[in-house]
Each structure stands twice: as structure tokens, then as C-alpha cells.
């Protein structure tokens, strides 16, 4: 059997800009102030018919650009497509941010000259390279809910279930059912979906 390909999808017709995903993420992973792995944005604000809110974080892209540009090769991509990185290898250069279409990588300020610390981004609640569910892993990467068989916290907490996460096929099935139910309206795919997954 082929591996599942994990993807995020934000159903823009359902997102109500409540920011619940951002808060859930920050609380679950005990993120420092100033770091928001997930953020709700509103694009084309004020333009009737075009205004949409959507929740963005690392999309765990196919052929992830961040992984391609990293000078220390600190990224690794799991079999299921989740893009993770090793904070002990990361030097905080910022290249991944320049390559990212979603502005996902963030850098806490640390050290005396305000130099950038190791990059932080969404892990799809899959932790990092350290021992799974160890204290160390939690400190650096947050919860490893996937290892526990739980849904990533943002999607789990989404009140309107706009934010979906899971293997590509299951996500597509949910979306297809929803589109059919609302009579084919709002067929446009979620913002950034094409960019991240190249229509695969």
C-alpha cells in the first residue's frame, strides 16, 4: 500500500476568522510570545465577493522549497509528506523564510546582538527528530500528537471544521461531499493549495 500523503486544507467558505486555530496551536505547544505557527489572514479584504479568510501555516509542501534552500540541510521530509526540521542543526539564517510561499518559518530573537535563533514552524503536531514524546522534543518542537494517534490540534479545535488535515484522499472526500451538498458552489480550491501541492 502506498503511503498516505498528509495535507492541510482550509475551507474558505467555512472559515469565520475566529483565530481559534492560532490560539489552540500556541497553547498546545506552549509557544513563546511573538511566535504564531498558524495565523488566520483575510485576503482581498473589503472587495465584495472576493474577500476570504483562511488559516495559514506551514503547508508541508510537495518538493518543499525550504528544504531545497537550507544551507545546513536541517530539513527532513517524512514518508507521509510532513516537513520537519532539526533545530539543533539550524543556524537561523532565514533562507527558508525567503523560499517559503506562505511566510511560515519564524525566528525567535535570542542572544546578545538580537541574532536569530533556530527557526520555528508548524510540525503538523509531529514533533521533531528527538526521541518521540520526550521532554526534550516537547521543549523544542511542541506536542507530538500524531505519534499519539491524535489529530493536529488546530484542525481538531476548529469550530466550523473549516481547517482539515489528514491524508490527501480523506481530505478530498470531505471537500467533495461538502461541495456536492452546497450544490457545487465554492468549488475554488483553498488558497495556496495549488502552490503547496502542485495539483497532485
Amino acid at each position: 500500500m502506498e503511503n498516505a500523503r498528509m495535507k492541510f486544507y482550509c475551507d474558505e467558505s467555512r472559515c469565520i476568522e475566529c483565530d481559534g486555530c492560532t490560539i489552540a496551536c500556541a497553547e498546545a505547544h506552549e509557544l513563546p510570545v511573538g511566535i504564531a505557527r498558524r495565523k488566520v489572514i483575510t485576503i482581498h479584504e473589503g472587495i465584495p465577493g472576493k474577500e476570504v479568510s483562511t488559516s495559514v501555516a506551514c503547508m508541508h509542501c510537495t518538493d518543499a522549497p525550504c528544504e531545497q534552500v537550507c544551507p545546513v540541510d536541517c530539513f527532513y521530509i517524512r514518508e507521509d509528506g510532513v516537513v520537519l526540521h532539526d533545530k539543533n542543526k539550524c543556524i537561523g539564517c532565514g533562507y527558508c523564510l525567503y523560499a517559503c510561499p506562505f511566510g511560515a518559518p519564524q525566528f525567535p530573537r535570542e542572544g546578545i546582538f538580537g541574532s536569530k535563533g533556530a527557526m520555528d514552524k508548524c510540525t503538523m503536531c509531529a514533533g521533531g527528530p528527538l526521541t518521540t514524546n520526550s521532554h526534550h522534543e516537547f521543549e523544542l518542537y511542541g506536542q507530538n500528537r500524531i505519534a499519539e494517534g491524535k489529530v493536529p490540534v488546530c484542525a481538531a479545535m476548529c469550530s466550523t471544521k473549516a481547517l482539515l488535515v489528514g491524508d490527501a484522499e480523506s481530505v478530498s472526500n470531505v471537500i467533495r461531499a461538502r461541495v456536492t451538498a452546497r450544490g457545487g458552489k465554492g468549488v475554488n480550491s483553498s488558497y495556496g493549495w495549488d502552490k503547496a501541492y502542485k495539483n497532485q
Binding site: C70, P71, V72, D73, C74, D86, N88, K89, C90, I91
Partner: peptide, 9 residues
């Protein structure tokens, strides 16, 4: 530039 060669960190 050759950070991957030096293993990062």
C-alpha cells in the same frame, strides 16, 4: 555556504 558539509549546528 557549505553548512551541510560541516553538519550544521
Amino acid at each position: 555556504v557549505f553548512g551541510d558539509f560541516f553538519g550544521g549546528g
